[in-house]
Amino acid sequence: MADKLTKASIRINTELCKGCYLCKATCPENLIFVSGKLNSKGYYPANYSEEELDIEKHACKGCALCAIVCPDLAIEVYRG
């Protein structure tokens, strides 16, 4: 179901995230949120989860801006 609706998605490695939230500020679709759970480094990592979002309204377009601004190479982008 989700596969059908989503043309693209990102995967955030929350363990690499240091919580700068540049990705969150950059995402044109506002798809990235701050996780309420600390990672092992002690940051509240940025996160992205299709389940927690209204996919119909906010589908990731795979623009990769989040990944481009991420200083920690924590974001992978998938399309197709």
């Binding site: 998605s9 919580g19 795979g62 990944a67 200083p71 920690d72 190479l73 992978e76 982008v77 998938y78």
Partner: peptide
Amino acid sequence: MKKVFGRPKSMKAAEFHYCPGCG
């Protein structure tokens, strides 16, 4: 789905030691 953005081949898998938001 195909990965279109990820770690470049010329980078090791190491985590950066830089501060949050460092350029």
